[in-house]
Each structure stands twice: as structure tokens, then as C-alpha cells.
Design a protein around this nucleic acid. Sequence first.
RNA 1: GCGGAUGUGGCGGAAUUGGCAGACGCGCUGGAUUUAGGUUCCAGUGGGCGACCGUGCAGGUUCAAGUCCUGUCAUCCGCACCA
Length: 814
Amino acid sequence: MAYSTKTDAKWQKKWEETGLYRFDPKRTDKKLYCLEMFSYPSGANLHVGHWYNYGLTDSWARLKRMQGWNVFHPQGFDAFGLPAENYAIKTGIHPKDSTYKNIETMEEQLKKMGATFDWDYEVITCDPEYYKWTQWIFLKLYEHGLAYRKKAPVNWCPSCKTVLANEQVVDGACERCKNDVTKKDLTQWFYKITDYAQELLDCLPKLDWPEKTKKIQQNWIGRSEGAELVFEGADGSFSFKVFTTRADTLYGVTYVVLAPENELVDRITTSECKAAVEQYRETTKKQTEIERLSTAREKTGVFTGAYAVNPANGEKVPVWVADYVLAGYGTGCVMAVPAHDERDYEFATKYKLPIKRVIKGEEGVDDTLPFVDDGILTESCEFSGIGSAEARRNIVLKLEKQGKGELKVNYRLRDWLVSRQRYWGAPIPVIHCEECGAVPVPEKDLPVELPYNVEFTPDGESPLAKCEEYINAPCPKCGRPAKRDPDTLDTFVCSSWYFLRYPDNRNAEKAFDTEWIDKMLPVDKYVGGAEHAAMHLLYARFFTKALRDMGYLHFDEPFLSLVHQGTILGPDGNRMSKSRGNTISPDEYISENGSDVFRMYLAFGFAYTDGGPWSDDGIKAISRFVGRIERLVEKATALNAAQGAGVNGSAEKELNHVRNVAIKGVTEDAERFQFNTSIARLMELVNALYKYESGSQMNNALFIDTINDLLKLLAPFAPHLSEELWEQMRGSYSIFDQQWPKWDEKALVLDETEIVIQLNGKIKDKIMVPSGLDKAQTEEAVMKDPKVTGLLEGYTVVKVVAVPGRLVNIVVRQ
RNA sequence: GCGGAUGUGGCGGAAUUGGCAGACGCGCUGGAUUUAGGUUCCAGUGGGCGACCGUGCAGGUUCAAGUCCUGUCAUCCGCACCA
């Protein structure tokens, strides 16, 4: 019977019945935690991306298993989120109902993939048993000062009366009603990830992660060294700090700028300027972040009427408000040095503010303004004549003595806003009491369960706020009537610790057992999309470090080794999308060819981390390859296995050579997620077996033995097929309990090696020499070869470069 | 605008520390099997008649460059004035 979905079903059943992939909790010494980023349970079937991520990582896990590792390979669902809630608003189907239904479908599909997932350890983030502990972590963070409340602007659609996610704002307008979106300040919960900014940066070099991902995180954290300087109001009624990396340009400050959102603006704006400033602030609110931060746009701003004093020289400079200054970065105030900053230069030119040079270029350097490089100070009192680098330090040190400045490291990273004005998420376990303020829900009362009966229609309030039986609760401290926090947690919170829950998913007493997860973690291999390079991966690292500092675990990093799969594009080379009509549905291909053919095509047709365009022709090639293997097994099972032994003649040696090259190649390539070349080595082995089989004499034992190795090497990539053929070869169940083949170094070396002969770097000929010659021997063998002496006639040899086993380059002169 | 990545036959893609460019496969060509088509099996296949030329383009380093250096172009992806 040829391989088909029937084969898939047969073995999936047997694997399940025998519990083949069950993790053995007793063998933690050889544990290997292999994890793919879990998925959102959408209503649709598994798409090619799921297969590419899960199918091939599963192949890697199978390889590791056969190498003797006790692989922990769990799976679960990131089940809270916006799509289910939007779906509910549209159709009236409750998010809980649709989500659990989708999970059921998806589980079924994932099982059909034939992966080694151990479903006993499944985690679903919208289960109260899970989010109970998401809430518990919130309480712990709060207890340790890592969760706090502050005001922050949200996108607000005045017409829908609802808060919008960035992706729901299209060109400054509400996605649904097309009205202008503005900003609204709400008091919201934050996690203090900035406390860990430095450590998150410091630990990056040690991680076995793609360099570009580390770079993204490094940029996201954005450490910059500079200084905080104090500017006082000219009338002495106020003061504020600015952050600058260019303290050396302090004497060139001709104005200062506050972010429009800065609270100081209200206090300092003079009555004559009030109207203009207010109007400017309103316009700013309507800008989307993209518009506001666009470089193409002309800079705008207004004068507040107030003046501040330059702490270095006592000069009076005007205070402006402009939206090119961001409230969330640094102090939200900037000292403007138009002569030495492009943005300030542009702004000053437009509003006719003075421009004062305080830095000269070194000898011969073009220092036309704006001159933003380091140079020599000028017009800067006692600092004139010294270099920028030195001045940056000295100027701050001088101000420090007067209490007007200090050296300071600033990070671009902002605290993580976790409040969402949504229903379908983990409720924030806090009760707001008029007397006692924000009171955390006591641990014993967790989980704060999400009520089922709520009104989703957006009307300006969090859906939970309108649910009377939910929102009203007695204050845990004083017992008086109070109200629950109406918001839910960002779904990134749920996914920031699921890998900690997997190994201990049934624990009803704790989020996880410390001793146990210290054994099970860190995750040894984490595989998922590059789009999570900044946020998810940073948040998960932060959670790990925070929980470590609270003593709940004792490792520093959650994911030791990380791989990003590439993207499979449509056949036209574009990103797959319904609107383009270029989507590929795995289901049709699988029912026609079987899941292993589909998986192997994904393995063979692409460089794993690059991805690329889909091709139907590629899948046919794999189908053919499977047929070739089946016919080999058919031949082998008809043979008398007792005939023949060892590796003797040259044909046998050649087959054995290819076999060992394949073992080495597959072992090393699959290890580093280079599945395409792994399959190529298997194809070579199959070709060699055909060639051997067509020869005049056959050593049955060698042939059969080689086929057995072939099947083992194939097993990770085509698990059902290999298990089936292994059974036909009368191997004992299961092939996945067999030992991974080891290669024989001796068999990798042929008797003779081909050496390339180059003359002045150009290839002229090739000769065979005995293998294993060293440099001098290679040179000798080549130089006395008649072919070479012939080549050299009429030339003078200048130099000979010999590379053993590869080539000899002879440098000659006429 | 800034940052990152990529660029190799007709196509997908291979090439340890710089050491035979194009592994493996698709496609194509030819042959065998077959009544025929398909399937299967075998062989050939970067370009050029050739000396030679070929890894986006132009330089450079080296006995030797797809690989290292400088510049440049194109495509894709992130981030958005970071003071």
C-alpha cells in the first residue's frame, strides 16, 4: 500500500494509543525543552505558516529525540484578544464560545499534522485556571513596585465613543466610522520594564539568537548616555530638566522646547499666548503618531510667552511648544541648539529664532551649519578651545556642583502599558475604593473571573464597567462598596509567561513549582516569527527576570536559543492574502499527497529562515522521491537478508561512503535548521542505492542495512512514512525509539582524492592522489605528475601553494 | 529619513577557516520501457564555436574572492524627529 493519508491516520492512532510522545518527567537530566510560539485560535484552518513553523520544528524535535533527548514539546493557545471580541460585536457570538470552538478545530488539525506534541501539558490562556496565575503575577509585580498607575493617552474615536488600537486607526480616522480620531488621557496600569532596561541589554550578547533580533532589541531599548540639565524660569516660578547627549553645545542654546502634552505648559503659558497654545495642543491630539512623527512634514510650534534661563551662562531664552518633542522620551523637554542639530536648525530658521555657533570643525573639516559632528568649542566661556567629548563631561561636572545638572543614562524603552478597555482578556485584579484607593484583590480570591453576560456594543466604557454584578465588589480592605477595575490585561501579558506554565500546567496551588521549573527551563530551542523580535521576546525576558528577583525561579533568560522561520509567499512571490487570491491551503495538498509529503516539501523547497514563493512543481518532486523510497523498501523486503556481509568491493565502498556522508550531513544540517540540504543528502543516498542495486553483484546485508539507516534519517521529516516502511522492514516499534545513526569517519574518506591544478589561480587540470597526504606530500605528488610537468613547460615556477585535499596553485612566470 | 537584511543558471536553492561556483531538486533535451500518453529508469544540461567569460554594478586586498575591504544600485523588511 502506497503512502497516503491512511498511513498518517494509522500511525497517529498507534502513537496516541502507545503514548509514544509522552514526556518522561523522571529523566530531567536529558530534558530538552523545544517550543514554538503558540498560536491565536482563529476560525480558519491551519495555514502554510503554521505548518512551516510547527511541522519543521517538530522534525527538529524528533531528531533530538532519536539522539536520546527527553524532549518536552508542549502546545497551547494564546486565546484572548481583539478578533474574538470584534467577531462578537459583528455576529453576537460570544468570544468564549467562538474561541473554544476554534480551539477544538485547531487541536484536531494540529493532531493531524502528526507532531510530537504532548497534549497533557496544554495551556489555554483564557482558561480561568491559567489567567488566575496571570493575575497572581500582576499582584506580585504590584507588591514589588513593578506595576503602577499613571495617565496615558489612548486613541479615541469621539463618534464610536471607543478606544482604538493603533491598527484600527487608518490615516488618522476610525476604521469603522471614518471620523477623525483624537487622543484621550486615561489612568492606566503600567509594568515597569524600564527597571530592567540595563539588564535586558547586558544579557543579549550571551544569547544564541539571530544577530538581527538582538540588534532590534538593542535599538528598542535604546540606551543613550548624556546629561540632565536644569533650566529655571526667568521669573523663578518654575524649573524643568532637559535630557541632552550634547552638553558640549549648551552655550549655543537659543530656545527650549516642551512637548505639547507636558504638564508644565499650562502653568507657564502667558495669557497672551494661551489661545494659540491651546489650539496647537488640540491639533496635536488629532495627529496620529505616524503623522506627527513624519520627517517629511514641516515642523510646527508656538511660543508660550515664557522664558527660561540657560544654567551655563544665565542667558534668557524663549520657551516654545512643538510636537517634534515627544512627551514620552527623556523629560519631554529639549534644549534647542539650532547651530548643531538639524531639527532645531529647521525649526529656528522657520520661526526666525537665533542660531549661534559654539562648535568649530577640526582643521580642514567642513563645518557649515548645521554642524552636528563633534569639534572644538568656541564662544563657550572657559570651555572654548577644548574638544566636544571632554567638554560634555566638564560642563556637566561644573553644573553638578551648583545642583543644576548630572550625568545621566536615558533609555528609549518605555514602561509597558497593560490596561486594555476591552472585554476578552484577563481581568485586572484590583478594586477601587473611595476610601482606600486602588486595592489589590487578595490572592485567595483569585481568579477574578470574567463574567459571561456582558454588553459588547462600544459606547465609551469598558464592557466590564457596564456589568453590574461584576463591577460592584466590596473593598477588600474596609468592606465598603467599591468597584472593580473595568479593564483587562494586554494579551502580551498572557504570552509573557506561558512557557513557565507548560511544565506544571495542572498545578492548582501555584503558578508553577520553583524546583520543577528550575529543572525544566530555560527553553532550549524557541521557534517563531521575526515579527515578535521586539515586544513579545522583550516582555517574556522581563517577566523572567522579575520573577527571578522575587525568588520564584533561578535562571536569567527564558529562551537560550532562538530561530525565526521565514515567510512562505504565494506562488506569485507576494505575501499570501485573501484579497490577492494567492493563498495556498495545506488541506488540499495533504489529502492528495499525505502530510509527510507536504512537510517534506516545506523542508526541501526553502531556506528555513528565508522562506520564499510556493511552487506546485516542488511538491510533485517530493511525491516522486517518496515513491522512489517505497520501491527501494519493496526490493529490500524481497531479499534474503542472510546473504552478504561487510563492506568490500568498490561499489560497496562507494555506497557506504554516500551513506556516511548522508548521516553526517543530515545530522549536522538538521541540527541547525537547514532542512533543505538535509533532504538533499537523503536524495543522494537514494540515488546511490539505486545505482548500487543496478550493479552486477549485490551484498544484501549491506543494502538492507543502508536502507534501515535511510529510514531512520528520513524519520524526522516524514514520520508516518518512515514508521510504515520501518515496519515493513520488520523493524521493532517505534522507529522513533531507535538510535540515530552515527557516521564512520573512515568511510567519509575515499581511497583517492581529486586535486585541482591551478596555474596563476586558473584551473588547468585535475589529478587523483592518494587520500590523506599532507601539504608537502600533496605538492610533491602534484609537481612530479606528468600532466603538471607538461603544463609547466616554458614557465619558471615562482611559488607553489598547496592546500591538502583540495588544490595546488602554481604561480609561474613566462 | 534612520536601521537591518538580501542580490548566485530558465526556476527553488547549495557552497567549513577565502581554496573546483551552481550540491540537491524543478524545468528542459536525448535515450530505454510502454500499443500510445502518463508513470518509471538512465544520461546530459551556466554562457560562448573557441581562447575564455561568469555570483547586482565599479574598484581594491590576495597565490586564490560568491565569501574580506571601499563605493554604488536595486528589492524587501523593521523603526518612525530619541534630543
